[in-house]
Design a protein around this nucleic acid. Sequence first.
DNA 1: CATGAATGAGGTTTCATTCAT
DNA 2: GATGAATGAAACCTCATTCAT
Lengths: 219, 219, 219, 219
Amino acid sequence: MTTPAPIRQRRKEARPAELLAAALEVFADKGFAAARMDDIAQRAGVSKGTVFLYYESKQALFRAVVEDAVVPHIVSGEALVEASSEEDPAVLLRNLLLRYWNVLADPRLEGLPRLIMAEAGNFPELASFYHENVIVRARTLFINVLEHGIQTGVFRPCDPAVMCRLAVAPLMFDCMWRRLLPPSDPLRVVPDTYVQTHLDMFLSNLLASPLGERNDDEK
Amino acid sequence: MTTPAPIRQRRKEARPAELLAAALEVFADKGFAAARMDDIAQRAGVSKGTVFLYYESKQALFRAVVEDAVVPHIVSGEALVEASSEEDPAVLLRNLLLRYWNVLADPRLEGLPRLIMAEAGNFPELASFYHENVIVRARTLFINVLEHGIQTGVFRPCDPAVMCRLAVAPLMFDCMWRRLLPPSDPLRVVPDTYVQTHLDMFLSNLLASPLGERNDDEK
Amino acid sequence: MTTPAPIRQRRKEARPAELLAAALEVFADKGFAAARMDDIAQRAGVSKGTVFLYYESKQALFRAVVEDAVVPHIVSGEALVEASSEEDPAVLLRNLLLRYWNVLADPRLEGLPRLIMAEAGNFPELASFYHENVIVRARTLFINVLEHGIQTGVFRPCDPAVMCRLAVAPLMFDCMWRRLLPPSDPLRVVPDTYVQTHLDMFLSNLLASPLGERNDDEK
Amino acid sequence: MTTPAPIRQRRKEARPAELLAAALEVFADKGFAAARMDDIAQRAGVSKGTVFLYYESKQALFRAVVEDAVVPHIVSGEALVEASSEEDPAVLLRNLLLRYWNVLADPRLEGLPRLIMAEAGNFPELASFYHENVIVRARTLFINVLEHGIQTGVFRPCDPAVMCRLAVAPLMFDCMWRRLLPPSDPLRVVPDTYVQTHLDMFLSNLLASPLGERNDDEK
DNA sequence: CATGAATGAGGTTTCATTCAT
DNA sequence: GATGAATGAAACCTCATTCAT
């Protein structure tokens, strides 16, 4: 049991994280351009000048926010897959998607997808960072699981890249869409059945044998 | 040798549409705050001041862009449903969704959902306009079709509000997310199978009897 | 009896006067900088471009307004003095001042002194025009009458330049000051006694013999 | 060889007064609309942006200028009357007017009446502020003294509101009008006799018994 | 002649960034 | 390190002036 560092010291080390948290809130709320350094500083409880001691510019802060908030969750997803390679692919896939959904439900992260999507055009380097470090890695994760399932005959034959996007779409969409509903709208609270229905539909489709029971809804 | 003086043109009638088109492009590309009136003017082939002859302010232009670009498609969707009430609900639903997808594929409209979602927080009045005039109306459209299908026994019992969101999610998601992929990424081109797979999965789920039996009693 | 000119013709000739009247109203109301050519044009019932057919620029219009509105009254004042050189100087002076007061009471001219005073600093040429053509000439008028009165022993000896300013001050002041009172303020209507009291005080002072009855209010 | 970088100075305490002084100069010189924030900043020795740290807008600065420059003199006038209630009303009145004249002679304040009068129409709230806090209070001051004099029989019966305006008119008029004279005009320098003559005339009129007899019964 | 749509210089205002304290 | 006053580039917006119709 060591003596705790004096408060000032602790502060100094906690600063970057506090700044990133504050910046994420403000950026997610207003977007990059409309976010003011003043607001971020104030929400972090420091003065405007201090932000520039830790981050060279507004853009650098923005990059740091995205990198900091998003990569750890990819890493932990990769670890989960790593640790569960023996598992039933259907169970693993369901777990991965639920984990994903829980991350997006975190009120601190909720705004991030919208933010990244909105600013990708203005920050090509950010977009490519995100693409390489998040999209590609996450997609690889899902595709690996899907391919494993197909190869072992658990899943029906399909294009894993397409199925990957279809698996993720309802989760991301709802997260980005939610803010458009007025606070009063009951749909703002996403019903549990939303994800359940999606997962059931998605997995039952994957598990269906391709021959026996095609659902030809026309004719 | 300067560029020859651009000939002044009087195009009172055509200007609003030209300005809206230019503004939509720039807003969708940069977002509201980062879009410069100068850029919009230049893209419309007019000078900065001219924009203000037609729209009182940047915000007013923004509102006009959204209202102009989005409402007509809702109207035409409503007309389609009106005209097809006799139709098989499954066919009608598929048509509605394909129509939706085609609208989102229009390169001029592609950026709109992203734009609206990104700016909803900064423009509450815009968000509520959009909610009332687009979301509620579109949702009603889908829910009516779904309820009709359920009541006639074509669709399995389900929560139409949930299914409505699940039907739309992959379309919107892809449209919004596409830009995050680098131009080189092959996935930027959405394979036809993406929507087909979604529609098949979605409709077969809807048509499936809840117990597992095929739902052939629609006669 | 000639046939009256066709309306369009009449208009064309009346235009400059109509424009000057409209411009005077707007300039007097807002000041030079805050007056908009659009407002002036609208009040004159023409389009903005038309104003520039008659006056080269806003400044030129401003100069014309002042010259047009102010010089005729000086001329008529000079004529009055010319015609009344035989008159009792006290009566003539009173008449001149009342005439002056009536001019200032004209709602169309009311705003002019304030306007000129406010803009003199921004338009040195206007100021010197006004000085030469109005101030000097009006002052000369009054001073001549005063000197004539002094020389004939009707008025007590005094500095006519000083007395001239004192004679005019209450008239001008009230005219400029009036607008500061809220429309509800009863003092906005200047009581008849205001000018009467001033004239009585002023003339009785002038007529008082310098020796006999000095009013030593101290001691 | 560029001008050496002007050293940044932090003068939070002194700035508001410096800015108000600079703004008063520029506003008085050009009027509200023609005054440029840049000019004001430069005259105060700061950059454009700094002005906005202290005053929210040009209008707010304008209001502050007027309030700051004018109210203290009213307060000190009220204090003088308070302290001199025992005094001979004639002496007190003369003192008040001389004090007034001295304030108007301050080169920093000289331009203020002209400014206020010129802009009253464009800033109704300013006009009513000025009316309530300056005109009404100053008028009350004079009227009280006048009424006291009338009641004690020192002054002849008269309408104090009218006399108040007549007392003040030559002072204000000269102050506002002075700038219309070209710098060369000898009358730009106001002779001492101007105010003296006015005060003598005004007070002797007030002290005169209405019938013509000297008013010596103040004992 | 008259119009009014179009222009663009110029002003106010914002805010990321710097730097004296 | 931390602060926040100061800076100035850049954006929105206005409006005198021009010119195609």
